[in-house]
């Protein structure tokens, strides 16, 4: 699943480590999600959405979307 996590993070000038600390997860988790190697669970996806104050579908995109 594609996502806009890297772009959203860059807009806020956050490092992966900063985002990981805000989400209370490991930096490896952020890296794996950003690169599309791991799709987060629904609870974590909601936490990410809450942090960026965006709906989930504005962060995580269907594979058919560009």
């Amino acid at each position: 699943m594609k996502n806009r996590l890297k772009v959203l993070r860059a807009e806020r000038d956050w490092s992966q480590q900063t985002l990981a600390e805000k989400l209370n997860v490991s930096r490896q988790s952020v890296n794996a999600i950003e690169t599309g190697r791991y799709d987060p669970s629904l609870p974590l996806a909601f936490r990410i959405a809450d942090l960026f104050e965006l709906p989930i579908e504005a962060i995580f995109l269907r594979d058919t979307e560009s």
């Binding site: 890297k6 993070r9 860059a10 000038d13 956050w14 490092s15 992966q16 480590q17 930096r27 890296n31 950003e34 690169t35």
Partner: peptide, 13 residues
Amino acid sequence: PLQPDPVGQVTTE
């Protein structure tokens, strides 16, 4: 110390 790299893929090397 960790390098400040806001958008890098890997920030801990």
